[in-house]
Amino acid sequence: MKLTKENIQFIDTYLKNSDVIYIDIRQEMLDHIASGVEQKMATGQQDFYDAFKEYMVVNKSEILKNNRNRSSFSWDVIRQFLLFLVKPYSLGVGVLLFIFFKNVDVNLYFSEDFTVRNLFFVLLIGVVLFQLFYFYIYLKKRFYAIEKTGAIWLILYYLQLFFLPAFGTNDVSAITLTISSFLFLGYVVFFIQELVKFHKHRFNYI
């Protein structure tokens, strides 16, 4: 016995009210629950609401466990980012950056009012503003597939606070510049890759 659009909407609202905020996660849970309820309705000769109630009493905690693991901080995405950074072409860019910073003293191009440290801070803030605009104004819906990259940004933000404090005045070494630029560029490219991947499959979620 197949569920109606109203039944599907009911499950979706139930999941929304259970704090399953990401659409992509909710869709998969919804299909799982709907399949289980359909099976229950077929074998137990129950109506939708009885079958749904009975199914959720037994399976709710396990199904929602999948949502609890979906915090914005994802170790999986950090692992993917690190794997991306150690790819040969990424490392090649890292070497080129080091050669560049070793031979060009970029500190000379900045003043006390706007240091290299300030630049990295502004770049990171710029990236997060773009992401906020993209998530909340352009997409208007929340997708775990794309928001999970925020975990990497958070780490980069704390790293720059620690290694490149915005209020320091002394020059930044070539190694620090290389690592900072490497991580920042890596993150931008990684985010763009995820964005392209997400858009390629976006019709899947809407």
């Binding site: 569920l3 299909d31 359909e38």
Partner: peptide, 8 residues
Amino acid sequence: NVDNRLRK
């Protein structure tokens, strides 16, 4: 799209 919902 399967039975009024998306299936992955």
